[in-house]
């Protein structure tokens, strides 16, 4: 089997186990208190960390395009518009800088 098929198999089994595991975990988590607050905050916290890691690995054009994307996101609250603005900005900045 090729490296690609191993990746697909491993990621599929692992991801489904995580999703199903959450269903079994759900009943165990208190619906209030510190655990609940941490769970509520986790998605935003995780995405913030992801952006930090991505942008550390990027250059000046990426940082400027990220600022433009942030402005568009705050003004429009639109996922597609933010994505298009970010792509166009980074394309233009990488050529220009």
């Amino acid at each position: 089997m090729t490296e690609q098929w191993w990746l697909i198999l491993g990621l599929a089994i692992g991801t489904y186990s995580i999703r199903l595991g959450g269903y079994f975990l759900g009943a165990q988590i208190p619906s209030s208190g510190a655990w609940s607050r941490a769970l509520t905050a986790l998605p935003g916290s995780l995405i913030a960390a992801l952006l930090a890691v991505i942008l550390i690995q990027g250059g000046t054009a990426d940082w400027l395009a990220a600022s433009i994307a942030l402005a568009v996101a705050m003004l429009t609250r639109s996922l597609p518009l933010t994505m298009i603005a970010g792509i166009v900005a980074v394309w233009f900045l990488r050529i220009s800088l």
Partner: peptide, 29 residues
């Protein structure tokens, strides 16, 4: 070369903006 690799970065920025609930999110983030 066409900037499409940046689509993910921009998408996460938009999602993060939508997840911002207020100043209480500042310290955790």
């Amino acid at each position: 070369a066409v900037g499409i690799d940046f689509a993910f970065t921009a998408a996460f920025i938009a999602i993060l903006c939508n997840l911002w609930r207020g100043v209480e999110d500042f310290l955790p983030w």
